[in-house]
């Protein structure tokens, strides 16, 4: 196997914020160090409120770490949000086109790419609907299409399937795996579902309670798509679930 390039690394990240009511500095991240390889699928799991979303925000440049360094080799980063974060004033088509429009790409090119993504994530027939008219699963498809439209080499996903019903989430996870294989995009996904992480990830980073650090990194060496009824799958889920401290 050829050695893969590092697409993303963080060394010794610290993050704290000032609680305006109490005047205290609250520490969220301490000493976070990791490397992620090109094409890898990494899941972050850990107790709720420990700082997983904060790390994604730092990686995407939305937030600055208090201390430490982030090194990003990725040329283009896209993000998918838990509540989809679509723009309610834009149609499905316009939402997906948003990133391309910001890049000043010409209209016919945008139309071509958007139509392609609409077909790919199964949104045909919904092009001209507004987010308010869509179900949770459909909104998340739009969120994924909006991210894919800019051809990212790094896709950050913050609990993308957490607010969906089980069947829809199951379906979207399968589709995401297909997308990952097809585009060879690096994915970093935050999730609180261990089952989801074991189904999708090459490596799982287990985070400690806040102020968080990486407690353990587990490699899952099972072929994808994974059989969720196999003994190995079940053992991994069981083992990791025990490791997450709340």
């Amino acid at each position: 196997m050829q050695t893969k390039k590092t697409i993303l690394s963080a060394s010794d990240l610290y993050y704290s914020y000032l609680n305006e009511d109490t005047g205290e500095h609250l520490s969220v991240l301490k000493n976070i160090t990791f490397e992620i390889l090109e094409g890898e699928f990494v899941c972050f799991v850990g107790p709720s409120g420990c700082g997983k979303s904060t790390i994604l925000k730092i990686l995407s440049g939305l937030e600055k770490s208090t201390k430490g360094k982030v090194n990003i080799e990725a040329k283009k980063i896209a993000m998918v949000f838990q509540n989809s974060a679509l723009f309610p004033w834009l149609t499905v088509r316009e939402n997906i086109a948003f990133g391309l429009k910001m890049e000043n790409i010409n209209k016919s090119e945008i139309d071509k790419i958007v139509t392609e993504k609409i077909n790919e994530v199964g949104l045909s027939g919904f092009e001209d609907k507004y987010p308010i008219e869509l179900s949770g699963g459909m909104k998340q498809r739009v969120g994924i299409a909006r991210a894919l439209a800019i051809s990212p080499d790094l896709l950050l996903m913050d609990e993308p399937f957490s607010s969906l019903d089980i069947l829809t989430a199951e379906k979207l996870r399968k589709e995401l795996l297909d997308i990952w294989v097809k585009y060879k995009v690096t994915i970093v996904m935050v999730t609180h579902l261990v089952e989801e992480a074991v189904e999708l990830a090459d490596r799982i980073f287990i985070f400690a309670p806040r102020p968080t650090f990486i407690e353990e990194v587990v490699s899952i060496n099972l072929d994808k798509p994974r059989d969720k009824r196999s003994q190995e799958y079940y053992d991994q889920v069981d083992k990791i679930s025990r490791q997450i401290k709340t």
Binding site: K57, L62, I77, F87, G99, R146
Partner: peptide
């Protein structure tokens, strides 16, 4: 909505573009 604002920024809406779009 904070996430919508974050999405706008991630997908390239800065400065005047952020104001307009």
């Amino acid at each position: 909505d904070k996430d919508q604002e974050n999405a706008a920024r991630i997908f390239g809406a800065h400065g005047l573009k952020k104001i307009l779009f």
